[in-house]
Design a protein around this nucleic acid. Structure first.
Lengths: 229, 229
DNA sequence: TTCTCAAAAATATGATCAAATATTTTGAAC
DNA sequence: GTTCAAAATATTTGATCATATTTTTGAGAA
């Protein structure tokens, strides 16, 4: 049995990463090395290395004065992410479609069921996790490591802010795009799959954008108006 | 005098980064922490942190067995970079054009002069450095930090392989696109500037691609045929 | 306010331990 | 006696930790 021992710095990296992706650490929150050392009961060196990695990925932000925080997105940064996600993620889907097999669609359906369950239970964290898993199970199928890494970085950047709005407007979540995506995969219909993922990205990013432009009160209405179309 | 001291790990990061970008470290080359500690005359912790950062950026590759190398690009990876660079970098130019002022174009012209001098002297390293500076002086003018970080990562990934081919075919370098770009900036002509950068990216990446497909002997001819168009 | 200084946090060093690779040794078969 | 491969050993490198040093912050005094 090949049980490769995962180095501490790798394990710590993954733990902090999840804390960022799934809402334990929120935008603007200061992150101290010492603090993480205590919370995670780890040594300073592994925590330090994990933080450097996450900073390089844009999941954390190194302020000038040796302070580190979870980034708060500005409006222009949201626009950048909007553009970048729409450039990279549909491409991953396009590559993945011809490589998709029944195993993949079955797996995606499983994840999507968990996702829907989480939504109906109002389980935000569950929603975030299964949504993440859905997208990256799909993206990984493309076998395109560089684009995948870019997508990972983009999710790490968008994740915390996305969580912020979803936490407030969980009821407006529209998982329909996932169904469409899976069906398109089964039909080897790349164009439809790409469009579904594009729409999925737009839905999420639009909410973040609306909150930034109009403040908290706006996102709800915006989403409702989209639903009414 | 406010001389904020740059932390060792930051300085080391920058040094290793340059070694990767400008050809001291070549694709496939194993990189050891201990080795860098000796070469750079540094402590293990700063080197370690710098390596984690560079690994996250794709400038280095962590093999399973705790080994680290400068990545060798596969053909599919080159295609990924091709696509990603063409997605991100022209967008940065598009954003930069309306923000460009005389100071910027003057600076770019300066860099471009150095670049041309380096080419006529057959100074590969100089070429690489000024080419890098040209692109990122332009990209930075966009004021789009996230897209800029993505572009940086893409250059770190493409750089070593690009150097490999340029080192062999320095005489085929076509810096014309830079002239076109600067003039387009002066005319606030975003479309032309974007197209020039696209062509610039294509020229470089095509050479890498050709070498990967047909081996060393092919790139020269391919470039010539492009010139003959 | 501005300055000083102590506490807290980040940074960096070097030592120690563990893991992986490289080298040598061993021993059986031919 | 030679060859080859497996075992044993040595060496290199990576991972982590404890500790010392430096930097920053922020409270309180001038």
């Amino acid at each position: 049995m090949e049980h490769r021992k995962v180095p501490e710095h790798e394990a710590i990296y993954l733990r902090i990463r999840e804390m960022i992706l799934f809402g334990v650490l929120v935008p603007g929150q200061p992150v101290t090395i010492q603090g993480l050392v205590e919370v995670l009961d780890a040594g300073t060196t592994p925590v330090r290395e994990a933080i450097r990695r996450l900073t390089a990925e844009g999941a954390l932000e190194a302020k000038g004065n040796r302070r580190i925080t979870v980034p708060e997105l500005s409006l222009t940064q949201v626009e950048e992410l909007y553009f970048a996600r729409l450039s990279i993620e549909p491409k991953l889907v396009q590559i993945a479609v011809p490589r998709a097999n029944e195993e993949l669609t079955k797996h995606l359906r499983e994840i999507d069921n968990h996702l829907n369950a989480a939504i109906s239970e109002g389980d935000i964290e569950g929603y975030l996790k299964y949504n993440y898993r859905f997208h990256f199970a799909l993206y990984e199928a493309a076998g395109a490591g560089i684009l995948l890494a870019l997508a990972q970085s983009l999710w790490l950047r968008a994740g915390p802010s996305l969580r912020g709005v979803l936490g407030r407007y969980a009821n407006t979540i529209q998982p329909d795009q996932h169904d469409i995506t899976i069906r398109a995969l089964e039909n080897h219909d790349a164009a439809t799959a790409c469009r579904a993922i594009e729409d999925d990205i737009r839905q999420g990013m639009d909410q973040v954008r609306q909150v930034l432009i109009f403040g908290d009160s706006a996102a709800q209405n915006t989403v409702k108006s989209v639903l009414a179309d």
